[in-house]
Each structure stands twice: as structure tokens, then as C-alpha cells.
Amino acid sequence: MNREPDNKGSPLLSEAQRLAWLRLIRSENVGPATFRELINHFGSAEAALAQLPALSRRGGKQAIRVCPLHDAMEEYEAMQRMGARLVALGEPGYPPHLRHIDGPPPLLSVTGANALSQPRAVAVVGARNASLAGRKMAHLMAEDLSRRGYVIVSGLARGIDAAAHGASLKGGTVAVMAGGVDILYPPEHDRLLADILANGGNAVSEMPFGWKPRGRDFPRRNRLISGISLSVIVIEAAKGSGSLHTARFALEQNRDIFAVPGSPLDPRSEGANNLIRQGAALVTCADDVEEALAGRIEPDLPFDLDVQEPETSGGGLPSEPSDNLRERLIMALGPTPVGIDELVRHTGESARLIQILLLELELAGRLERHAGQRVSLVY
């Protein structure tokens, strides 16, 4: 499926393609980066699904769970009954900045209108146990930015997130969920979520419909918050706060990071103050943010990692790499992440063969992917 760089005018997936994409991303050991490599190697999700068992066996795992069509149809129909929809990478409704991160989610579950498609998006995040002053700052910052045409993105959490969402309802705000788009957390934000959707905002998640969020799911949510946005504003974040994880993802994604300074006597300000010392821009009002962004509607130097699925595609399993190459690659890998380009140079083989071997190992549960196109071996 050919795509325009700005997503405008891009064709929608057919229903059969959408179900195949859903099956592929819900299959065992298939994450966003693996999904992209599978599509690029085999030409379509349907072709990739047929090859998962063989790839997994070659990587050392005899049985891999491939998501059944019935399960995908059940999830798809449950979403439709709720009024949610699946938006695929490259389709017009996909967040324009999110497609430029390393390993963008191939599918998003979305409820609400079209705030997600706006390029002028800014994240406002911070402490759950925020002070009254912190909540007021989040409200003022989000309200003013919203009035100037920015969509406010946050995580629907207590404290700063809730204040930012509530202040930007009229301009459209995006709530990024850690669980399924139908699972509200925290549950007391049911009215806030209803107001977000009623005012043209969105709720969005990459997790399966009906998924209850676990602790490990919140970093994935934070990665989406920063990925959807041009920049991230941190207001009150204690040392080790999840908001600092969002800032770290923003740095990896080459987003602007802003922080509101706070009292050195308040531990809730330690994280934001540290960000400023490390180079984040100090901001105290919407003017500061707008001046720093200088009218930009695209992040600088974005990744460009769209998957490509032609209307007609074939593609069988590539020639099996030799056992000698497989052994050399495994010997070169270890618990320390190494760049895929380095592996190609070390082995002297084609990037395509190395990528196939990495797919085998990942589908067998023996490989972990890291930011910056790096991988490590799982023991």
C-alpha cells in the first residue's frame, strides 16, 4: 500500500487487511518493530502470518501462538459495538508525528473525533499527587495553549494529567490509555473521559481491547504520549516519576522537552528541576512554549519507518541462512545491546539475511529490541 509522506490521501486498509494486521500484531512475540520487518520482508500481513511457525522453529521455538482469525474478529466487532475503531499506520487518521518514532504501533484503538490527526500537539504531564499550585499551572498552560490551537495530550492520570485535560476540553484533547481503550484507569475519571469525547477529543491505546493495565504498560503509554506530540511539558515530577520516563522517550524521539521549575523544598519538583539542569527548556507560560516551537508542526529529523503493504503481494520464506551464519550471529550477540548495522558489518552478510535471523530469534523469544535499532540476546 503506497503512502504519501504526510498521510493525506493515503488509502485505507481493506477489512481483510485490517484483520490480518490485527492478527499479526496480536501474535506471540510480535511487537511493532518485528511487525514492520515482517511486512517489509513478506509483502503483507497475510503472507507474514503464514511464515511465523517456520521462522519460530528456525529460531529454536517449536510452537508459536498465531492469533486466530476468530479472536481478531471478536476484538474487532467488540470495538465496533463500543463505537471505537482501528486506525493503521499510514492511514489518514493516524497521529502524524507518531509514525516518525522508532517502532510506531501498527494499529491504534481510537474513540472520539479527530483531535489525533492534528499536527500541533503538545503533551502536558506531571505528578499524580500534584500540589494545588502545580494543578493551577497545568490548567493555565493547557488552557492557553489550547486557545492558541494546540491539542493537549496526556495520560488521563490523577493530578497534572487531569488538570491539563480538563482545561483543554474546548480545543480538543487526547487521552492516551495504558490498557484497552475500553478500560478506564483511574475509574473515577469516567466523567472526564466522557467530557473529552463529547468535546471532539480522543481516547487512544495500542493495547488489545479489554486489556487491564499493568505496571509495565504505563511506560508504553508514556512512549505514545511523547510520540504523538511535538513537545513534552513536565510540571511537578518527583525523582523516578513516570513523567520522567515520558521525557526520556521524548529525548529518544527528538522531541522538545520543557519543564516548569518548582521549589527545591518540594520533592515533587525534583524531577522537573533536574530536567532543566540537564538542558530542558525552562518554561512558565504558553508564550515560552510557542516561542520555542517557533511555528513548527513537525519534529526535527524524524524517523521514517512506515510499513508498506502493496495491494497485491506474494512473498515466500527467504532462503534459509546457513547454520554457520546463525551461529556467528548468536556468538556476536549478548546481553549488551548492539546496533543492527554493527552486526551486518561484523558478519559481512547482507542486511536482509541478518534481519531474517533476528526475526527468527525474536519470534522464538530469544531477542530483545532496544531504542536506536539495537538488539540484545535473551538468556
Rank of each mutant, 00 (worst) to 15 (best):
P208W: 06
S231P: 06
I225K: 14
F258W: 11
T246L: 08
N222H: 14
R268E: 13
A286F: 08
S229H: 08
R216K: 09
S229F: 05
S243C: 06
N273P: 13
A250Y: 05
M207K: 01
D266K: 10
S229N: 10
M207R: 04
G242K: 11
A237Q: 13
A280G: 05
R220A: 02
V283Y: 03
L230S: 11
V289T: 06
G295I: 05
A203D: 04
P213F: 02
S231I: 03
I257L: 14
N274A: 14
V260Y: 15
A286T: 07
Q253G: 14
E252T: 06
P213D: 02
N222W: 12
E236N: 03
P267V: 04
L265D: 15
D256R: 04
E206H: 10
G227I: 10
N254A: 13
G262T: 09
G262Y: 02
H245D: 09
A272S: 15
S269I: 02
R214E: 14
A238H: 15
G240K: 10
I235Q: 10
A250R: 15
R214K: 13
D217K: 06
D256L: 14
D287T: 10
A250W: 08
A272V: 05
A247L: 14
P213V: 00
I233E: 15
G262F: 09
A281E: 15
A238I: 04
I225P: 15
D266N: 15
K212V: 05
L265E: 13
R223Q: 01
T246D: 10
M207N: 01
A286N: 13
R296A: 12
Q253R: 09
A203M: 00
G242P: 09
G279V: 05
R277V: 11
R221T: 05
R255L: 02
A237P: 07
I235R: 09
F258V: 07
A286L: 13
I297H: 05
I228P: 10
E291P: 01
G271T: 08
G240S: 12
R248L: 14
A203S: 13
D288I: 01
V234G: 05
I276L: 12
S269D: 11
R268N: 13
V289L: 06
A294T: 07
E252D: 10
A259H: 09
S269C: 09
S226L: 04
N222C: 11
S241E: 07
G295R: 03
A280V: 01
D288L: 12
D256Y: 08
G271Y: 02
I233H: 11
L224N: 03
I257T: 11
A281K: 15
L293M: 02
A259Y: 03
K239I: 13
N273M: 08
R216M: 06
G271E: 00
F258P: 14
W211A: 01
V260H: 08
I228L: 06
N273C: 09
L282E: 12
G215F: 02
E270M: 03
I225W: 07
A294I: 00
G262M: 15
Q253S: 08
F258A: 15
A238G: 15
N273W: 04
R216E: 00
Q253N: 08
D288V: 01
R277E: 07
L282R: 04
A280W: 01
L224I: 14
I235E: 07
P261K: 11
A250S: 10
